[in-house]
C-alpha cells in the first residue's frame, strides 16, 4: 500500500436529473485527519456513501487502501470504519451484544474479539453502559457506541458523517477529544458544519459546494489565503459624527477603505479599516486618532475567519475548483 489511503477520481453522482456530486477528485494520505465541509446537500454524505460502497458513483471511481470500490467493495469495507449520519443503531440491543455482533461481522472471534471489545469499550469510555439497551442511552453515549462499532476491527480508515451533530457542547468536546486521540494513527474523514471543530480536529479541510470541491487546504492556510487583515477601532463618540471620523482615518496612506461598523456600545463608534495590501495599520490608526484628539478605546486585528471563507466559497461566487 502506498501512502495514499483514499484516492477519489472524478466522482460524479447523479440522482435522476440532479447532480449531487460533480467530478470531485481528492486524495487523503495515511494518518491525515480531513474535515469535509459544506452546506447541507452539498454532497458530503454522498461522497462518504460512495467511499463506503453503499452507493456507486455514476461516474469516476475511488480507491481505498489500493482496493477499488467497483472491483473489490468487500476489501474496501474491511479497511473502513464507518459512522453514518444520525448514528443508526439497533436500539433494541444491549451495547455489549451490539458490539459483539459488529465484531463478529468484522471477522473477530473468541479471545481476539474479547480483547478488541475491552479495548474499544475503554477507548470510548462505554464501561458504565455496557449492559444497557442502546435505546436507553443519551445521544452522547449513542455516538460513542457508533464510534466503538467503527473502531472495533482497528480499521486504517475512518469515515465519520457528522459525528458531533446534535451533541451538547460537553459531549461534543468529549467526542472531539476522542477523535483526536483516534486520529493519531489513522486516516480520518469527518464531515461537519461546525467550523470551530474543524480547526481543532482537522489538519486539512475540503470544502464542497453544490457537488463540487471548492477548496482543499489546511485551516490556517485557507484563512490566510482568502483573508486580508482588517482593523477594527473602537472610538469614543464625544459628539463626533461618523463621517468626521471616517475622514480622520482616510488620511492613512495604506488604507484601502474605511467603514463604519454596526455593533458598538452606546456612545462608541466602531470603524473598520482595511489595508491595501497586508500592511499592519495599527500604529497608523493610533497616530491618526491621537492627532485628531479622538479617544481610542480599543484596536483589534481580525483575519478573515473560516466562517467568512466558508460563506464566500459556498454561496456560488468565487469558487474556483481546486
Amino acid at each position: 500500500m502506498s501512502d495514499v489511503m483514499i484516492d477519489a477520481r472524478d466522482l460524479t453522482k447523479q440522482y435522476g436529473t440532479v447532480a449531487a456530486l460533480k467530478n470531485a477528485s481528492f486524495q487523503v494520505n495515511r494518518g491525515e485527519v480531513v474535515g469535509f465541509l459544506g452546506p447541507n446537500g452539498a454532497g458530503k454524505t454522498t461522497t462518504m456513501k460512495i467511499l463506503t460502497c453503499f452507493i456507486a458513483p455514476s461516474g469516476g471511481t475511488a480507491q481505498v487502501g489500493g482496493a477499488d470500490i467497483f472491483e473489490d467493495p468487500i476489501a474496501v469495507r474491511e479497511l473502513i470504519g464507518y459512522l453514518p449520519e444520525n448514528t443508526p443503531l439497533y436500539t433494541e440491543m444491549l451495547v455489549l451484544e451490539y458490539l459483539q455482533f459488529v465484531g463478529k461481522m468484522r471477522g473477530l472471534r473468541g479471545a481476539g474479539l474479547d480483547a478488541r471489545l475491552r479495548r474499544v469499550v475503554e477507548e470510548t469510555s462505554l464501561g458504565e453502559v455496557i449492559g444497557k439497551s442502546i435505546g436507553e442511552l443519551s445521544k452522547g453515549f449513542r455516538q460513542r457506541v457508533g464510534l466503538a462499532q467503527a473502531l472495533i476491527h482497528e480499521p486504517p480508515v475512518l469515515i465519520l458523517d457528522e459525528p458531533m451533530s446534535g451533541l451538547d457542547p460537553n459531549q461534543a468536546s468529549e467526542i472531539r477529544e476522542l477523535i483526536r486521540e483516534i486520529g493519531r494513527e489513522r486516516t480520518i474523514i469527518l464531515s461537519t458544519h461546525n467550523l470551530a471543530e474543524v480547526r481543532v480536529t482537522c489538519g486539512r479541510v475540503l470544502i464542497i459546494s453544490q457537488g463540487q470541491l471548492v477548496a482543499d487546504d489546511t485551516p490556517d492556510e485557507l484563512a490566510a489565503r482568502a483573508g486580508k487583515p482588517r482593523f477594527i477601532a473602537t472610538l469614543k463618540q464625544n459628539g463626533h459624527s461618523a463621517s468626521e471620523i471616517r475622514e480622520v482615518f482616510s488620511v492613512i496612506g495604506d488604507a484601502q477603505s474605511v467603514k463604519e461598523q454596526a455593533g458598538g456600545a452606546p456612545g462608541e463608534l466602531l470603524v473598520e479599516v482595511v489595508p491595501k495590501g497586508n500592511q499592519d495599520l495599527r500604529a497608523d490608526i493610533f497616530q491618526a486618532a491621537v492627532s485628531a484628539k479622538l479617544v481610542l478605546l480599543g484596536l483589534e486585528q481580525r483575519g478573515e475567519n473560516l466562517e467568512d471563507i466558508f460563506r464566500q466559497l459556498t454561496t456560488g461566487n468565487g469558487g474556483a475548483s481546486s
Binding site: 473502513i80 464507518y82 453514518p84 449520519e85
Partner: peptide, 14 residues
Amino acid sequence: RTGTIELLITMPVT
C-alpha cells in the same frame, strides 16, 4: 427506515 441498513451493508458482506 432507521438507517441501520447502511451500517449492515457497509460491513464486509454481500
